Amino acid sequence: MGFKLLSKLLVYLTASIMAIASPLAFSVDSSGEYPTVSEIPVGEVRLYQIADGVWSHIATQSFDGAVYPSNGLIVRDGDELLLIDTAWGAKNTAALLAEIEKQIGLPVTRAVSTHFHDDRVGGVDVLRAAGVATYASPSTRRLAEVEGNEIPTHSLEGLSSSGDAVRFGPVELFYPGAAHSTDNLIVYVPSASVLYGGCAIYELSRTSAGNVADADLAEWPTSIERIQQHYPEAQFVIPGHGLPGGLDLLKHTTNVVKAHTNRSVVE
């Protein structure tokens, strides 16, 4: 069995187990497998329904001669939608809004960016022009300005110390501490036991640490421990890039980060 097929099978099995364990909360999309990078042309966006009122959005972007996937989250909030992270750029984010209108038909009224990198804030200006209120932590807003990236308009308070959590509509926002970046936030959907790890969490097929220019490698494993301790009931975990899975993604990420750190020390 090929690795790609095995990865998709694991996603399907995880979703099936969740649907059985929580039949009222989960209505997993039966329309197909989780979209992969090879299936999404740059400039297009796919939506994948995880649970009743919960979707991931998947886009792709060219970077350094390669094409990478990027995940975000959409959560229903009454007759409105909360968006977590842009679709990595203005063109993708405009396509995301169009796809949401086509498939869901509810307005996106608020959006949260989970850290300051372009795959999370690139497209904020498109959201703002569409009347979406954009939010991020003060740290993310400051770092985005320093980096020359787009800056969300509103500040999220109460997320300055490791372990801080605040309720934001249908989700809980959690600051686990520094990891992929010093400002990275985690998003949890309690009604569906869905954990969105953003770039602080890796997919299972990833074996290298990737972009760690703004990471705190020493603190990252401790931050992941905080996530595990705060959300032990999480059933569906979405990484910032690639295929979702279960809580095993947290341990896998820790292993990859520690291996990278150990290699760096040896070198």
Results as ranks from 00 to 15, higher is better:
Met1Ala: 02
Tyr68Asp: 07
Ala213Asn: 11
Glu267Tyr: 15
Ser162Arg: 12
Glu33Tyr: 14
Leu83Asn: 01
Ser137Tyr: 03
Pro152Trp: 01
Arg141His: 04
Arg141Lys: 08
Glu233Arg: 08
Ala21Arg: 07
Ser264Gln: 15
Ser160Cys: 15
Ala129Gln: 11
Ser31Trp: 11
Val37His: 05
Gly122Lys: 15
Ala111Phe: 13
Trp55Asn: 00
Arg206Thr: 11
Leu217Pro: 08
Ser56Val: 07
Cys199His: 01
Glu147Arg: 09
Asn262Tyr: 09
Asp183Gln: 00
Phe236Trp: 07
Gly246Arg: 07
Gly43Cys: 12
Glu33Ala: 10
Asp64Glu: 08
Arg141Asn: 10
Ala178Tyr: 05
Ile151Asp: 04
Gln229His: 05
Gln103Thr: 14
Pro41Ile: 11
Gln235Thr: 08
Ala259Gly: 09
Leu13Met: 06
Lys258Arg: 09
Ala215Trp: 13
Val256Pro: 01
Leu96His: 01
Glu101Lys: 08
Ala259Thr: 07
Lys258Met: 13
Glu39Arg: 09
Ser70His: 04
Thr254Pro: 14
Asn149Met: 14
Tyr34Arg: 12
Val189Gly: 01
Asp52Gly: 09
Leu247Cys: 15
Thr14Ala: 11
Arg76His: 07
Gly105Ile: 15
Thr93Tyr: 00
Glu157Cys: 07
Phe3Ile: 05
Val126Thr: 04
Tyr34Leu: 11
His154Gly: 10
Thr140Pro: 01
Asn211Asp: 10
Leu243Gly: 13
Pro176Gly: 14
Gly163Leu: 13
Asp52His: 06
Gln103Val: 12
Ser27Tyr: 06
Leu247Thr: 10
Asp214His: 14
Ala25Asp: 06
Ile104Asp: 00
Pro176Ile: 04
Gly53Ala: 09
Ser62Leu: 09
Ser264Gly: 13
Thr153Cys: 06
Ala234Glu: 03
Val11Gly: 07
Ala90Cys: 09
Val194Gln: 00
Arg206Lys: 14
Thr140Trp: 01
Ala129Glu: 08
His115Glu: 00
Phe236Ala: 06
Ile104Glu: 01
Gly78Val: 11
Ser205Cys: 04
Pro138Lys: 15
Arg76Gly: 09
Leu83Pro: 01
Val45Pro: 11
Pro170Arg: 14
Ala234His: 01
Ile74Ala: 11
Tyr135Ile: 01
Thr60His: 07
Val187Asp: 02
Lys91Gln: 13
Thr14Phe: 14
Gly242Pro: 02
Ser16Tyr: 05
Leu10Trp: 08
Lys91Arg: 14
Ala209Trp: 13
Lys8Gly: 11
Thr253Gly: 00
Pro190Glu: 09
Gly163Tyr: 13
Asp125Cys: 03
Tyr175Arg: 02
Arg46Met: 12
Asp164Pro: 13
Leu185Asn: 03
Val112Asn: 02
Lys102Ser: 15
Arg167Cys: 04
Val108Cys: 03
Glu147Thr: 09
Ala178Val: 11
Tyr68Asn: 08
Pro190Gly: 09
Ala15Gln: 12
Pro176Ala: 12
Leu185Ser: 02
Glu150Arg: 04
Pro232Thr: 10
Glu150Pro: 10
Gly105Ala: 08
Ser70Lys: 02
Val166Tyr: 11
Ser30Tyr: 06
Ser162Asn: 05
Ala218Glu: 13
Val126Gly: 10
Ala95Met: 15
Ile50Gly: 01
Asp125Lys: 09
Ser191Lys: 08
His241Gly: 00
Tyr231Lys: 01
Ile100Pro: 00
Ala15Trp: 06
Ala15Glu: 05
Tyr196Gln: 03
Val112Ser: 02
Ile20Gln: 15
Thr253Pro: 00
Leu159Val: 13
His115Asp: 00
Ser113Leu: 12
Leu173Trp: 01
Tyr135Gln: 01
Thr207His: 06
Ser208Arg: 10
Gln235Trp: 12
Phe3Arg: 04
Thr207Val: 13
Ser137Ala: 10
Pro152Ile: 11
Arg76Ile: 06
Trp55Leu: 03
Phe26Tyr: 05
Arg142Trp: 07
Ser139Gln: 13
Cys199Ile: 00
Pro232Tyr: 12
Pro170Ser: 13
Val112Cys: 03
Ala25Tyr: 08
Gly105Val: 14
Val42Pro: 08
Gly240Val: 02
Val187Gly: 06
Ala87Phe: 00
Val67Ile: 08
Gly158Tyr: 12
Leu127Arg: 02
Val112Gly: 03
Ile227Ser: 07
Pro107Met: 09
Lys8Cys: 06
Arg226Met: 15
Thr36Cys: 13
Thr114Tyr: 00
Ser31Phe: 14
Val132Asn: 03
Lys258Glu: 08
Thr93Trp: 00
Glu267Trp: 10
Glu39Asp: 15
Tyr12Asp: 14
Arg226Glu: 10
Tyr12Met: 08
Ile224Thr: 06
Gly78Trp: 08
Ala144Cys: 11
Ala21Glu: 07
Ala19Arg: 06
Val75Asn: 01
Gly43His: 05
Thr254Phe: 14
Trp55Pro: 01
Pro190Gln: 05
Gly2Trp: 08
Gln103Met: 11
Ala234Lys: 03
Gly65His: 05
Glu219Asp: 11
Val126Met: 10
Glu233Tyr: 08
Ala200Trp: 02
Leu243Trp: 11
Ile20Trp: 07
Val194Ile: 05
Ile40Ser: 12
Asp248Trp: 07
Glu80Ile: 13
Thr261Glu: 10
Ile151Arg: 06
Gly72Tyr: 02
Ala59Thr: 05
Asp77Ser: 06
Thr114His: 00
Ser162Pro: 12
His57Tyr: 03
Pro232Met: 14
Ala25Ile: 10
Trp220Leu: 02
Ser7Lys: 15
Arg263Glu: 06
Gly72His: 00
Phe236Tyr: 03
Ala25Phe: 15
Pro232Leu: 08
Leu127Thr: 01
Ser205Asp: 06
Ala95Asp: 10
Gly246Val: 11
Glu80Phe: 15
Leu83Tyr: 01
Leu185Gly: 02
His260Cys: 12
Gly245Thr: 02
Gly240Thr: 00
Tyr12Cys: 13
Leu204Arg: 13
Glu44Leu: 14
Ser56Asn: 09
Asp79Pro: 09
Ala133Met: 15
Gly158Glu: 13
Trp55Met: 04
Phe63Tyr: 05
Ala129Thr: 05
Thr222Ile: 10
Leu185His: 00
Ala90Met: 15
Ser193Ala: 10
Asp29Lys: 08
Gly158Arg: 14
Ala133Pro: 08
Asn255Phe: 05
Val257Arg: 02
Leu247Gln: 08
Gly210Thr: 12
Gly105Cys: 07
Glu157Gly: 14
Arg167Trp: 04
Gly242His: 03
Tyr231Leu: 13
Ala144Pro: 03
Ala209Arg: 07
Ser139Asp: 14
Ala209Leu: 08
Asp64Arg: 09
Leu5Val: 08
Ala192Ser: 11
Leu9Ser: 10
Arg120Thr: 03
Leu97Arg: 03
Val237Arg: 00
Gly158Thr: 14
Phe63Glu: 10
Thr109Gln: 08
Ala259Arg: 09
Trp88Glu: 00
Ile186Asn: 03
Lys91Glu: 13
Ile104Val: 12
Pro239Cys: 01
Pro41Arg: 07
Arg46Leu: 13
Ala21Asn: 10
Ala133Gly: 09
Pro232Gln: 11
Leu10Arg: 11
Ile84Leu: 13
Leu106Glu: 14
Ser30Arg: 09
Tyr68Ile: 07
Thr93His: 03
Ala179His: 02
Gly177Ile: 01
Arg76Val: 07
Thr114Arg: 00
Val28Cys: 06
Val237Cys: 06
Ala129Ile: 05
Ala259Ile: 07
Glu99Leu: 14
Ile58Tyr: 05
Val146Arg: 12
Glu44Met: 09
Tyr175Ile: 01
Pro35Asn: 14
Leu249Gln: 02
Arg141Ser: 12
Ser193Ile: 05
Glu44Lys: 10
Gly240Glu: 03
Ala218Ser: 08
Leu73Val: 06
Glu172Gln: 14
Thr36Tyr: 10
Gln228Ala: 11
Lys102Asn: 06
Leu24Asn: 09
Ala213His: 13
Leu127Ile: 15
Val237Gln: 00
Gly158Pro: 15
Thr86Glu: 01
Asn149Gly: 09
Trp220Gln: 00
Gly122Asp: 08
Thr261Phe: 14
His57Arg: 02
Leu173Val: 15
Pro239Ser: 06
Thr153Pro: 05
Gly32Phe: 05
Phe236Cys: 04
Leu250Val: 08
Lys251Phe: 15
Asp29Arg: 10
Ala136Trp: 03
Gly131Leu: 11
Val75Asp: 02
Phe3Met: 13
Val212Gln: 13
Glu157Lys: 09
Glu203Leu: 01
Ser62His: 08
Arg226Gly: 10
Ile104Trp: 08
Pro35Lys: 14
His241Thr: 00
Gln61Ser: 07
Ser56Arg: 08
Gly72Pro: 01
Glu172Trp: 13
Pro23Val: 07
Lys4Met: 14
Phe26Asp: 10
Thr153Lys: 07
Asp77Cys: 07
Pro221Asp: 14
Ala90Thr: 06
Ile58Asn: 06
Arg206Tyr: 15
Ala144Gln: 03
Val189Ala: 11
Gly242Ser: 03
Ser62Trp: 12
Gly32Asp: 10
Phe236Val: 07
Ile58Ser: 08
Arg128Phe: 14
Val171Lys: 00
